[in-house]
Design a protein around this nucleic acid. Structure first.
Length: 273
DNA sequence: AGGGCTACCTGTACGC
DNA sequence: TGCGTACAGGTAGCCC
């Protein structure tokens, strides 16, 4: 499910609902997520009070008033649900009880994970340490990307997908970003012109910002913690659009699908050079 | 050191 | 209807 816009939407929603709430009880139904749920998670969380929730790339950093940060990755199908009462559903792995509220972690494929850190150590976690820059930071620009591209021979789609280069882009938004910047996903990074890199940076910011405004993209699993869908689905121009007329050149060309590094890429051969 | 590929898991869609 | 297969928003950890 979740790339940067979805995780950011979840972050905003959790912040709205959980700030200052105190955890009364934690129940773990399934221990084997991507990594084992920390042994003492129930004990670590009970009695804790939610503070500001942050995001880095596709990771959530859930902070507590006490000296504790919960690092959460949603994998492919991880969702949080916030309800006033609890009625069990399939794949509810972690149920966190608050005063008159339940926070539930549900994850069909179990690729998500939870890890517990002391506040000052969470940024040192191996997951976060290797992440590239935040694409929506003001300081993120073509010079930073260009530097990362030096001496690399990969195609641009693969490059954008690598979290070491930029944090937060995934399979949907990489196709959409390259379509928006009219750059072919097959282009190799070492022969990209500065003007093209600039276009890509502009498209990254534009697409991600718009997607956050619309609450992310709901394909099958993804919903916000309060159960809302993400409406960027209606803005997708190429992802999942194989054989459809191209949004830009209309009937002159159809969207093609190809597989790069084992992942589907969608693009227009006429518009993207 | 750096890159490429696979495994992890369940659900769904599709062809036969 | 049922079975087999391919594919799905991600990434750690293996191998080369």
């Amino acid at each position: 499910m979740p790339e940067l816009p979805e995780v950011e939407t979840v972050r905003i929603s959790l912040n709205e609902h959980l700030l200052k709430c105190k955890i009364s009880k934690v129940r773990i139904n399934v221990k084997n997520l991507r990594f084992p749920v920390p042994n003492n998670l129930e004990k670590s969380l009970e009695g804790k009070v939610f503070e500001k929730i942050n995001r880095r790339g596709k990771y959530l950093l859930i902070n507590f008033k006490q000296d504790l940060s919960l690092l959460v990755h949603l994998g492919m199908t991880g969702v949080f649900k916030i309800n006033n009462s609890y009625s069990p559903e399939k794949h509810d792995h972690i149920v966190i009880e608050l005063k008159e509220k339940f926070l539930i972690y549900n994850d069909v494929r179990r690729f998500g994970f939870f890890k517990v850190y002391k506040k000052n150590l969470v940024m040192q976690s191996p997951h976060l340490k290797k992440l590239g820059p935040e694409p929506l930071d003001i300081g993120f620009n073509e010079l930073i990307l260009k530097k990362k591209m030096m001496n690399k021979t990969q195609n641009i789609k693969h490059f954008l997908m690598d979290q070491k280069n930029i944090a937060g882009l995934g399979n949907i938004y990489c196709s959409e970003i390259l379509f928006d910047s009219k750059i072919s996903p097959l282009r190799l990074v070492n022969d990209m012109k500065k003007s093209e890199i600039k276009k890509i940076v502009k498209s990254i910011k534009k697409i991600l910002t718009k997607a956050i405004e619309l609450g992310g993209t709901s394909l099958s699993d993804y919903k916000t913690p309060s159960g809302k869908l993400g409406y960027f689905k209606n803005e997708l121009k190429v992802y999942g659009m194989e054989n459809k007329n191209c949004f830009f050149c209309k009937k002159r060309s159809k969207i093609k699908k190809l597989v790069q590094q084992g992942r589907s890429t969608f693009f227009c051969m006429k518009c993207q050079k």
